[in-house]
Design a protein around this nucleic acid. Structure first.
Lengths: 249, 249
DNA sequence: ATCATAGAGTGGTCAGACCACGGACTGACC
DNA sequence: GGTCAGTCCGTGGTCTGACCACTCTATGAT
């Protein structure tokens, strides 16, 4: 029943595995901090009692996981925790799944709705100001789809950041790459007509107002509404696109 | 602004990096499926034009990421996508964060609330039956804290599964290890008194009933209530513990 | 003072060899 | 004929030692 949760307490049988967990644990315990420089490969291999190839396998693995930054001629440095690795891992895990692009939207809604509830409780004045500023930027960048899309994302990200929850933030960043792919894939179907975009700004403003009033239920409600409308629009556009195709035939 | 989302399109300068992305892309495109067996290291090295150590660095990295299952004397096999890697990555990413254990609960609430909404729309009869069965098991295992905890987790997991969202499911599995740590750490403070446990069962039943009635708003409301009560209990227990400590002093 | 150059230190790569493990084949024995 | 043990081969695991390529720095000449 709880297989999923089982921690691998098994001692890795292979040397590279041992070295890997050695460094991973130091990283977890904070004994190794971001920016620290590791010893040279030859010295490290000697110190850990393994050969250089074995050490390199472990180091390379840590680098691929984004935990290390190894640079030719300079050395290996501990990298700050980066959500991009998480994003890659998530992408890999979700790859075999069907409808990932649509499905990841559900995760987005989940994170944001909880984030805005927390934000209503914990957002600082600076957080609110930042979000308000992005709202202005959103209005300014209505005519530029590229910039507008970026601002849109930044607005939502700012809300998650205002939640003060590192976990929500990291997960949100992790699904961002997939979110972007979904966004790009969908851009073919969506058209930024004035009626749509003005409604978009208004929806964002409503969400922000509820947040500024520190009203969690209302904020979540409006956010869900915003997502639902976006979903409806996409559906309609899709339908009209098919209809157009039908007429062309 | 969108740095986070930037995909690394840069060609890896190192040989191991090239081999790594080579296999990663095959994995992503589905060209390599779970269960497939890779060629031997010597043949692969020859085929890809790199030396065996370099190839091994790449393979080992893929194995550390959980994408490959390399077994001594047998060979390297493609592993099915596994959320445990995600969990590890998440743990690593969140390690430097303060209050992770509490914070990850926020992520849990986020996922579950959205999941139960979806479940109200998409849960099959089998899903509902499975959840109902777990509810019964929960009642049966009231006196066994260990088994009760497991059933509790299984109940919530079943709800997420009933949402039919792979993304939510994977993320939920990913935070499970941290959730467990949080649970264990807290078990010192919580006591399974009859009054508490009976209330617990009732809360679960209420959630299930709303789900069975396919009422998203009510289901989410009851779920949030359930979490809030648990939170309150923890707080009270913590306080009483401190008070006891104060009396002991 | 500035710049070019040489050296040292570091990661990147390679070749070849040997060890350890797992499975399959083969043979003897029951 | 069936079963079991032993052997062999293919596989990953490890090691050594060497050489290449990159980066920085110190040294020297201009």
């Amino acid at each position: 029943m709880l297989d999923i949760v089982r921690q691998d307490n098994e001692e890795p049988s292979t040397g590279a595995g041992r070295v890997f967990t050695f460094f991973r644990d130091r990283l977890l315990s904070g004994e190794l901090k971001a920016g620290d420089r590791l010893l040279g490969e030859r010295e490290l291999a000697l110190a850990l009692g393994v050969s250089r190839p074995v050490l390199r396998e472990a180091l390379r693995s840590l680098a691929m996981l984004g935990l290390l930054d190894i640079r030719h001629g300079r050395g290996a440095y501990v990298r700050s925790a980066d959500a991009s690795v998480l994003g890659q891992a998530l992408t890999l895990c979700l790859a075999p799944e069907p409808n990932i692009l649509d499905d990841v939207l559900q995760a987005r809604i989940a994170i944001e709705c909880q984030a805005i509830r927390l934000a209503c409780l914990r957002a600082s004045e600076r957080d609110l100001q930042a979000i308000a500023a992005l709202l202005d930027t959103l209005v300014d960048s209505l005519d530029d789809p590229e910039r507008g899309g970026g601002t849109d994302y930044a607005f939502h990200l700012a809300i998650v950041r205002a939640s003060g929850s590192g976990a929500l933030m990291k997960i949100y960043e992790a699904i961002s790459p997939l979110l972007m792919r979904s966004h790009v894939e969908r851009r073919r179907d969506t058209f930024r007509e004035p009626a749509i975009t003005s409604g978009l700004v208004d929806a964002h403003r409503q969400v922000f107002l509820a947040l500024a009033e520190r009203n969690p239920d209302e904020a979540e409600r409006r956010l869900r509404e915003h997502f639902a409308i976006g979903d409806g629009l996409r559906r309609n556009n899709l339908i009209s696109t098919y209809q157009r195709q039908g007429m062309d035939t």
